[in-house]
Design a protein around this nucleic acid. Structure first.
Ligand SMILES: Nc1ncnc2c1ncn2[C@@H]1O[C@H](COP(=O)(O)OP(=O)(O)OP(=O)(O)O)[C@@H](O)[C@H]1O
Length: 751
DNA sequence: TACTAATTACGGTGG
DNA sequence: GTAATTAGTA
């Protein structure tokens, strides 16, 4: 018996949690607020099942929607289960892929991402001369919603009746995928559910041993995932329904844009009769002053069941609203805050969260400049980079010779004279004979001499790239051979500038080391490699968590995680809530939940940050603080406008906030707002030296007419005139978005 | 016919 | 800032 676990069960869980962990009769639905220990229940329950009830690892499956949340679960479980087999813990998509890989062998398949989906639709739209009026992206999204909402091809098709265009596009899209042996992400779920319903052998193999199913973040599941759980629970050998345990929080539902519906939680009891419902309202994560902010905010949503979370962690003044003059200033302030907190907390317990990936760029710049280690989670992802996609396309062709998207991607990359005309010819031939492989098609072009001789030689050369390689070739060999034969590195060097080229070559090396990594794990062939990376988006780094770094990620990605210090950047109108949700109450409520999720990630300290101006799509824009601030009483969330603070003052501010807050456990009466304001005011009077020092330093920077410069408040501008007549100060007239301003050059830096 | 350089369009959260 | 598109050239 694992005494560590025993002790944990008795001392580290409250009553409802214990009940949830040990519950054995029928389905279980746990509705509990943020930070109330839902994930802890799931992980402890898995450990309990394995240790106390001696359930096999293979009989347990734990699912969730995002990679990050899945990883969090997996890591927490390793605290209980050090060795021996682990149950499957991962995303719905990963689980379905695994099942298809193991038990579905009718034909090999290639997994396509949303880029590829858009390409297929775009082609269809072009065929129909509608590529101008409809965006491929919108169509893909539309189809995805339907395919996640309706079960089975017929139902989906039926759902498109009434929209002739969508109907036809759906049919054409499905047909194209079939010809190319493609499965998109939605298909992983669709196919699995379909097989579970119709293929008794598949059903047997998948469900035979399955007796316990656990789902985290249930509020973010969509109809087909709900159906999957149902199917999975029905067919094990015991003849009884598998034990289903799901946990969720309606207030954290942030994926409705991809079909997630809290209805799944509301109707859970009807789909799973005799469900026991448990509720937990104690929050163990956040200081109560942070939780108060979250509670106040979420109260403003109309579509929710009233609940108030409470916390025992007494700490005052832990949440503030920080206002900056510009986005650049905002990032500087954030870095300052990080530096102040660094002494107590490891960097990796800090996170900067934002609404959109694009916001990360400017943060990244500031962090590099100030030498703070950081790690961006998600974002422009490794496997989305052009050079990686090119190489993977060659590899995918080895595995699936019907893969047209990959074929057209590499046919003329590196450029070899097989341009649009050649592409046109291929499409025409495939129109006539859809079931030709890429190689058969090229063969036909050569044999029938459908292009001038010089081109035919090029085609033969292209075909020779694939000779002696197959899906069974070891990954590294295949990658190296393709690199060699296509002269890909030389092409990169010739096409891109020095820096850019080396970066791309680095990425290619990274891909090679990922291949080596998987070879060492026993996935030797290129087929296996592609399967392994199909659902990945980040690169594989050997020592992932070892280097301590601040985490940067979207609010969506942060769900299910927790950090000592959280800073949410860009809490502004147009960003959070996003401009697209302005007039849609439901969408606005989801934005509010998104902020709620962000706030409730913080354990000790929280900054909601906004700037008065920001570069949006390359142009500067006046920003207004988010309407959500109006939902939070000022007493709970004091505001500080830092627009005119010097760096010294900023440091002092954060140091003081931090120092004061750390001893709030004792009766602490001064509120930070007073103390901090006093402090900043004093600093303003006494810190003249700062300015002088700065000016002496900055005077060395020579500013010229037409030079692009950056100002902490006005952002980027162009110098019109420079006035160096005074020997104390240098002035410059700078043209900003907001107009021409006369500025002391001390405040400028080259942009 | 294809390549290169210049111009223009576009931009949300994830698997 | 990037990707797709377009105009101009080999
Ligand atoms: N009974 C408990 N006693 C002490 N600490 C607890 C208890 N239950 C949970 N915690 C701690 O509270 C924090 C939040 O728990 P957990 O992440 O499981 O919550 P959650 O409900 O999954 O949160 P969210 O829904 O926000 O993702 C964790 O640090 C966890 O270790």
């Amino acid at each position: 018996m694992n005494t560590h676990l025993e002790r944990f069960l008795h001392t580290q869980l409250n009553k409802p949690q214990q009940q949830a962990v040990t519950h054995q009769d029928g389905p279980l639905l746990i509705i509990a607020g943020a930070g109330s220990g839902k994930t802890r229940v799931i992980t402890a329950r898995i450990a309990y099942l394995m240790h106390n009830l001696k359930i096999n690892a293979t009989s347990i499956v734990a699912l969730t929607f995002t990679n990050k949340a899945a990883r969090e679960m997996r890591e927490r479980i390793t605290h209980f289960i050090e060795q021996g087999p682990m149950p499957f813990i991962g995303t719905f998509h990963a689980y379905c892929l695994l099942m298809l890989k193991k038990y579905f062998h009718e034909h090999p398949f290639t997994i396509i991402d949303s880029d590829d989906q858009e390409k297929i639709i775009k082609q269809q739209l072009e065929k129909r001369n509608q590529s101008k009026e409809l965006s491929a992206r919108a169509v893909v999204h539309q189809l995805s919603l339907l395919r996640n909402k309706y079960i089975g091809h017929e139902q989906i098709k039926h759902a498109t009746v009434g929209n002739q265009v969508l109907h036809e596009l759906y049919i054409a899209y499905e047909k194209e995928k079939k010809i190319c042996n493609y499965l998109d992400f939605d298909d992983l779920l669709i196919k699995t559910v379909q097989l579970l319903k119709t293929d008794s052998r598949f059903q047997q193999q998948v469900c035979r041993q399955l007796t316990h199913i656990l789902v985290d973040e249930y509020q973010d599941t969509n109809v087909i995932q709900h159906e999957l759980i149902k199917q999975l629970s029905m067919h094990n050998l015991t003849g009884n329904q598998a034990h289903v345990c799901v946990v969720g929080d309606e207030d954290q539902s942030i994926y409705s844009w991809r079909g997630a519906t809290v209805t799944n939680m509301q109707t859970f009891t009807t789909d799973f009769p005799n469900t026991t419902i448990l509720k937990i309202e104690q929050n163990y994560r956040s200081m109560e002053s942070i939780l108060a902010v979250a509670n106040a905010l979420i109260e403003h949503n109309s579509q929710r069941v009233h609940k108030i979370l409470w916390s025992d962690k007494k700490g005052k003044n832990r949440a503030i609203n920080l206002i900056s003059g510009s986005d650049y200033q905002e990032t500087d302030r954030i870095v300052n805050a990080l530096k102040a907190f660094k002494n107590k907390y490891r960097l990796s317990t800090n996170a900067i969260l934002y609404r959109t990936h694009t916001q990360s760029r400017i943060l990244e710049e500031a962090l590099i400049k100030k030498g703070v280690a950081y790690r961006i989670v998600g974002g422009t992802q490794f496997y989305e980079r052009a050079e990686i996609k090119d190489l993977l396309a060659y590899l995918k062709l080895l595995v699936n010779p019907f893969d047209r998207i990959s074929f057209f991607r590499v046919l003329n990359t590196p450029a070899r004279g097989l341009g649009p005309k050649c592409e046109e010819l291929c499409k025409e031939l495939w129109g006539k004979e859809p079931f030709l492989t890429v190689h058969e098609l090229l063969e036909k072009i050569v044999v029938d001499k459908l292009l001038p001789n010089s081109k035919l030689y090029t085609i033969q050369h292209f075909s020779s790239f694939f000779v002696n390689l197959s899906g069974l070739t070891p990954s590294t060999v295949a990658i190296e051979t393709i690199l060699e034969r296509t002269q890909y590195i030389a092409y990169i060097k010739a096409t891109y500038k020095e820096e850019n080229a080396t970066e791309r070559i680095e990425n290619i090396k990274e891909l090679l080391s990922a291949a080596k990594h998987f070879e060492n794990e026993g996935h030797h062939t290129i087929t296996q490699f592609l399967e392994e990376i199909a659902l990945l988006n980040e690169k594989i780094t050997a020592a992932k968590e070892s280097n301590d770094a601040v985490l940067l990620m979207t609010l969506h990605a942060a769900k299910g995680l927790e950090f000592d210090f959280v800073c949410i950047s860009g809490v502004e109108e147009q960003i959070l809530p996003t401009s697209r949700s302005q007039h849609d109450t439901e969408a606005l409520e989801e934005e509010r939940r998104l902020l709620y999720v962000g706030i409730t990630r913080a354990k000790e300290f929280l900054i909601l940050s906004c700037a008065k101006s920001r570069f949006m799509f390359g142009t500067p824009s006046r920003q207004f603080s988010s309407r959500f601030f109006d939902n939070i009483p000022k007493e709970l969330l004091p505001s500080f406008d830092s627009s005119y603070w010097t760096e010294r003052q900023t440091e002092q501010f954060f140091n003081q906030w931090f120092a004061q807050a750390t001893f709030t456990e004792s009766t602490q009466k001064t509120v930070i707002s007073q103390a901090a304001i006093k402090n900043t005011l004093n600093a303003n009077k006494t810190n003249q030296n700062d300015v002088k020092q700065n000016s002496a330093q900055a005077y060395k920077t020579i500013f010229k007419k037409n030079q692009k410069v950056r100002h902490p408040i006005y952002g980027i501008g162009t110098i019109q005139t420079v006035d160096s007549s005074s020997n104390l100060k240098q002035y410059a007239e700078v043209k900003f978005f907001s107009g021409v301003k006369k500025i002391i050059t001390t405040f400028l830096e080259p942009a």
